[in-house]
Amino acid sequence: MKKDMTDDNDTTLSALLKLAGPTEEISADVEQRVYSKVREEWEQTSKGSGAVRWAIPFALAASVLVAIALNSPNTELPVRSVGTYVQSGASIVAGDLIDTDMDSGQSIALNGDISLRVDKNTRLEVGDEGEFTLLAGRIYVDTGDRIYQDRHVIVHTANGTATDIGTQFSVAFVNADMSVAVREGQVDLSDGQQSSSAMRGEKMTLRSGGSIEIDEVQVAGAEWDWAVALAPQFELDNHTLLEFLKWVSRETGMELVFDSDETRAVARVSKSHGSIQGLTPLEAVEAVLATTQFIYSIDGKTISIKN
């Protein structure tokens, strides 16, 4: 099941890195010398503002801090919010259970600009550090462009675990089958025994018996309508037309195509104002572009823009 990671890109990467050679170790003495000087400078700066609370030798800092936290009987750690409901602004914290009814879903902004959308009839347990347990129903995650970010969104079900690799995807757990549909990027799927990766345009289903099926899924289309309906509102003000069109493209899964670089350049500096509240992304395109010199067409897979 596991896909072979050795491809052309891997070969190029390997050749480039071998050419560069191994990273030279930095002398521990050098590191300690610089640390001491920078630390001293920092403490002097911080003391000026009365900010430094304690000073602990570098090598011991982490363990001592942990000991302080564990041994202090009066220490109450604050409950950390992991996100907020878009509609109400209420916080969600680790341990919460999100339980949607048959009439409406929930749109949640996780810390770090990640959009989590919970479909109707879904039960989702909130963990810490981007981990969730899907007990029933369906969720959609858009982690945005987080190429340098080390954090993952991890979704557990009774059948297995899905880990995002910077992407848009949905996870459903229905009738004891777990399915992961990937709209953009890549999601790793594991049941503890075997693992595989679902790529853009793939839907991977992990059956309760342990078998895995892979099907194609359209990245634009009715499959995603429920998630698009829960998309956070886009604010036109303070965004360029190009940013708006990219948002529409990302939400609908349709490719954004300009008839020329000049058209793209004009969109990059153009701005529209007003509200598109209550409109779907495609309805918003019609409303917004009606006030500009741009002409557009949509064929189900592509949004074409002409100037």
Binding site: S46, V52, R53, W54, A55, F58, A61, G112
Partner: peptide, 27 residues
């Protein structure tokens, strides 16, 4: 990316506020 910028900003704020653990993370 905006996520990394926000992460950096939080780290910088913690370092500037005198948080020793943040300083060590930064270093």
């Amino acid at each position: 990316n905006t996520f990394q910028l926000k992460t950096d900003q939080k780290l910088a704020q913690r370092v500037a506020s005198g948080d020793v653990a943040a300083f060590d993370d930064f270093f």
